[in-house]
Simulated assay, not measured.
Amino acid sequence: MVQSLQFSQPLYQQIYDIIKSSILAGELKPGQKVNVSQLAEKYNISRTPLREALRQLQIEGLLVQDHLGLSVVKLEETDFKDLYECRLMLEPKIMGLILKTVANEELEEIEKVLLKAESAFKEGNLLQLLELNAQFHDWLLEASPNKRALHLLQQVRSFLLLYRANILKNNEHNREILKEHRQILNALKARDEAAVIQNVENHLRNDLERGTNMIRE
């Protein structure tokens, strides 16, 4: 169903949100070509805001440009593993630093995000669950005192968004991920650095296995 555009947001932001949701929900499939003219006609907008939206999706790694044109990024096992190796090198160390700076009040706010994610899982709202799972990591990582390392990690996580969306189509994976997020949060609240790093590494390695199996299916 075609979503209607509103006047409350810039057009490029609205069309960006619509196309991004279509990609993450699987309506636009990995490898599928994106026709700019058809999209402009479909949403009755000029090419200027549309191209700005598509440019932002390219920056985030959801769309790719080659000699054949613009298309949704393909799910590639080698690329996925390379990205997760980057996460494994960066994220546990960053989380260890966060433990020294994150306030109890911030952990309480992060727990609220986790509770919302658990509710979204029970309601079967996968796109909201994807967003809330991302927020869980984002809120934690924002407490990092090393902003350069944080910026690198955010780039890696952005390129993994489509992979994560596909992993979340499996309910058992959702249950496991929420349990692992809860374990990470509990370790942070206990101020146990070794447990924080171990739980983060376990979560990432489990995600790597979940994603690899998803790609191979």
Score class of each variant (00 low, 15 high):
37 S>L: 11
38 Q>V: 09
38 Q>A: 11
39 L>P: 05
39 L>D: 03
40 A>S: 15
40 A>R: 11
40 A>L: 02
41 E>M: 12
41 E>A: 13
41 E>W: 01
43 Y>N: 03
43 Y>Q: 04
43 Y>R: 03
44 N>A: 09
45 I>P: 00
45 I>A: 02
45 I>Y: 00
46 S>T: 04
47 R>Q: 13
48 T>S: 13
48 T>A: 12
50 L>S: 01
51 R>M: 12
51 R>I: 11
51 R>D: 14
52 E>Q: 15
54 L>T: 00
54 L>M: 00
55 R>I: 05
56 Q>C: 04
58 Q>I: 10
58 Q>T: 12
58 Q>W: 06
59 I>V: 13
60 E>D: 06
60 E>T: 06
61 G>I: 09
62 L>I: 07
62 L>P: 04
63 L>C: 06
66 D>C: 04
67 H>A: 13
67 H>S: 14
67 H>L: 13
68 L>N: 12
68 L>H: 14
69 G>H: 03
70 L>I: 10
71 S>C: 04
74 K>I: 06
74 K>N: 10
75 L>Q: 13
76 E>I: 11
76 E>R: 10
76 E>T: 07
78 T>G: 10
78 T>P: 07
78 T>K: 13
80 F>S: 00
80 F>K: 06
84 Y>S: 00
90 L>K: 03
90 L>R: 08
90 L>Q: 09
90 L>C: 00
93 K>L: 15
94 I>V: 11
94 I>G: 05
